[in-house]
């Protein structure tokens, strides 16, 4: 494995499972020291073990202003300013808009959107002072095309992509590149949980695979590879971009 991130510090949210855990592993494989952020300390510890010591765990709720304000500065002091920040923490609150409670709406926006605001506020000034860096958000195919019974999620991921572009413009002069990956159906514990709630989980999983021209769901390590590209110097002129990693799903859908 090449050492594109040798000597670099990366901070990854949602690092306890799925895409966040996979990207932490990938960045560590390529030489980074990774600060693993997430709510579940035990899951973070498990990721840290797989990273073989090139990691620190930082259990906190990324949607909590108090948590982020209290814990991120000490993490920066202990491990250094991050060269790479990956916002992989996310959640899916299902339902049509008229069926969602205030709490549903807030929970969706807090985890998927507010977390980016809080963590950016806590890390950005240090990154500017450090001479720049790279930020990758995990948006979604839902940033580009709507899905039924998914109103708050679609709105949150649309906002993540718009925010990514705004951050890219604001960071450009300071050498901070900001890009989004937009995964399609990825075989994660979260998605498996959704399938398990369907009448026929195996059929639901099969239909998710069949939705992609490549004929299968994606794997977390495939999203991690795309994130690693965007985070690396190989993407030195890519900023404000949305990179679909969806097996071709949106090649068939008008993207506006």
């Amino acid at each position: 494995m090449s050492g594109r991130f040798a000597g670099k510090v990366a901070l990854v949210t949602g690092a306890g499972s799925g895409i966040g855990a996979a990207v932490a592993e990938r960045l560590a494989d390529e030489g980074a020291f990774v600060v693993l952020v997430g709510r579940r300390g035990l899951a973070l510890e498990e990721t840290a073990v797989r990273l073989g010591g090139h990691a620190a765990v930082l259990p906190l709720d990324v949607a909590s202003s108090g948590d982020v304000a209290a814990r991120i500065p000490e993490a920066l002091a202990a491990h250094g300013t991050p060269d790479v920040v990956v916002h992989a923490a996310g959640q899916t609150v299902l339902g049509a808009l008229h069926d969602l409670s205030d709490e549903d709406w807030d929970r969706q926006m807090d985890v998927n959107l507010r977390s980016i605001h809080l963590l950016t506020r806590a890390t950005w000034p240090a990154m500017v002072e450090h001479g720049g860096g790279s930020v990758v958000t995990v948006a979604s195919t839902a940033s580009h095309a709507a899905f039924p019974q998914d109103a708050a999620y679609v709105a949150s991921k649309g906002a993540v992509l718009a925010l990514t572009k705004a951050m890219a413009l604001d960071g450009a002069a300071d050498g901070i590149r900001v890009n989004a990956v937009c995964p399609g159906y990825i075989d994660t514990p979260n998605l498996r949980g959704y399938f398990d709630g369907q009448d026929d989980p195996a059929a639901a999983a099969a239909s998710a695979g069949a939705a992609a021209p490549l004929g299968r769901m994606g794997r977390p390590d495939e999203i991690a590879a795309a994130i690693a590209f965007l985070a690396s110097d190989d993407a030195s002129f890519v900023t404000g971009a949305s990179l679909l990693v969806d097996g071709g799903v949106l090649a068939q859908v008008p993207v506006g």
Binding site: P213, L214, R219, E222, A226, V238, A241, L243, L244, A251
Partner: peptide
């Protein structure tokens, strides 16, 4: 590394 990526038009 792009094994799940097809049909995309990536701005650089």
């Amino acid at each position: 590394d792009a094994s799940a990526i097809t049909g995309v038009v990536l701005p650089v």
